[in-house]
Design a protein around this nucleic acid. Sequence first.
DNA 1: CTGTTAGCGCGTTCAA
DNA 2: TTGAACGCGCTAACAG
Lengths: 331, 331
Amino acid sequence: MADVARAAGVSVMTVSNVLNDRLPVGEPTRARVMAAVDELGYQVNLTARHLRAGRTDTIAFIAPSFHDYFGEVADRLALPIEAEGRHLVLARTAASPEEEMEALSAARLHLYDGVLLSVAGLDSDRLERVRTAKPLVLLGERDAPERFDHVRLANEEGARLATAHMIDGGSRRIVALGGTIDPGHTMSSDRRLGWERAMTDAGLGVDPRYVVPFPVYSSAAARDALLAVIDSGLPFDGVFSTTDVVALGAISALSERGLRIPEDVQVTGFDNLEMAQFVPPGLTSVDANHEELAEKAVGILHRRIAGWDGPAEHVVIPVRLVVRGSTRGQA
Amino acid sequence: MADVARAAGVSVMTVSNVLNDRLPVGEPTRARVMAAVDELGYQVNLTARHLRAGRTDTIAFIAPSFHDYFGEVADRLALPIEAEGRHLVLARTAASPEEEMEALSAARLHLYDGVLLSVAGLDSDRLERVRTAKPLVLLGERDAPERFDHVRLANEEGARLATAHMIDGGSRRIVALGGTIDPGHTMSSDRRLGWERAMTDAGLGVDPRYVVPFPVYSSAAARDALLAVIDSGLPFDGVFSTTDVVALGAISALSERGLRIPEDVQVTGFDNLEMAQFVPPGLTSVDANHEELAEKAVGILHRRIAGWDGPAEHVVIPVRLVVRGSTRGQA
DNA sequence: CTGTTAGCGCGTTCAA
DNA sequence: TTGAACGCGCTAACAG
């Protein structure tokens, strides 16, 4: 910037004023400055600007990975953020356990004006240790310290809807694929709870053999788990899948064993990812309402950044069932 | 930091030295400093550190969206980047055409030590205008100015492999779904070219009616396009899809019209996304070799950041066909 | 081992 | 309308 000023025969402040349209600058001066800028290929140093300004106009979304669900959510989050003139960047929570959530270090969080943090893959210990002076909104389906703003889905209700819908369609023995019986609230236990409630409401027993947990929510793990169930001979005629990615694994397993969807087995997912529309015969799924989720979470964050200082908000986003070919019956 | 120094009764440099393990610091002093740090909840300001250091130890991957292909690639890119002790962040090229690639402004690129830029969705004009002093490596399947380092896939060869494989399996009339007849090299025209070569090699004619272009590579667009083909009565027994996402749309359309895969119609994709393994009957796809792609692209970028100054590299990553249930015949 | 000085590049504040 | 001084928070280099 000093170089530009020298080349144009003005002070650095005049350059700054020209570039930011701040104070009025004489037309001939402005022209000389712009010429010098072009000549030298000058570009502002945003790092310096950020230091000076004390803000970066950037919000980070931090999630365990960039795949599937997180990618789709991120694209949604971008809209309200960009609408406010800020930027969105994504970062991963450190993959290596050694690094102890490097991406979550207080210092790194400091690089952004605010942070949207997915709680997936973070245990309560880690969450408890997250410290930051900057605004932070949690996103996701597990219990977290009360002090944080937190936006999550109506997991139990969504799971209940999906399961009840399969019961309406004639299923009586429904596997809760990816469900767990954790204490406290996690995505898998909340959704299992909804499944349980639907079964109970319908007067069907809750048999623990139908709760099939696995460690990681991948299609591969889901597929293997359901293959094992099929091969064990346990009879079932419905699969409530904890997520769409899990449902895809289930569909793969059923197809491999020659079971027809929905004739032999109904299947539901959760999240309503884009692929749910296209995987034959169309996956009935609980719509995670990414639009409203993004709107709410980003809204809270923007208010916090603006200095709002109310008590921590805990928002539950309503969900709805989207019925497709993988189930019988009506919505 | 000054506050910490005051509280500990030392100079700011000592605080800095303690925090960075730079110069040796006496044990009692160090203890007092750490106590003050804890007390005050102090955290380094990375913005200031970056300004001072002239680098951010951060690499950006900039792509049109965070979905599907880009999310999977990003997760791969993270590995070699983190292995070198740097951080990866993702940013989107501005969605709104008005904003004129805000994310690509030279100033923003300056925030990172280096940039991996997906050329998808950027026309040559925009690419031509990209200026940055910082190292930048292009990723993706279209022509770009020679002056850039560029890593892309063996698109034509991959498409040829996939198409030839379907011909081996008995298909004679193969739709190039998402193919185009652009001048120059784009993803869709290169892949269409490979399809064409396989057809020609096999002595099958190349009928332009079998090239089905559409504007955006979504499953929805692909589905609609293939439905139109089916309903037009044009006979076909194979679908070479430009991407896996396109293939998913094709599978959806075929299923909706009651056509069996692979008995009535063989289908191939390109990218070998994770879902390709799970969508029944398993999608035969050209493996985009994300691992090698990431290795090469990040390798070049790291060398550039280290100051290496060779001529622009243009790397083509070899691909291979992964055969699954959506086609007959052997690999 | 610890402190002082200086400057990374910008923009706010005040003076001219 | 333009310029000079100052400091955002940090660390390299040197002095003590």
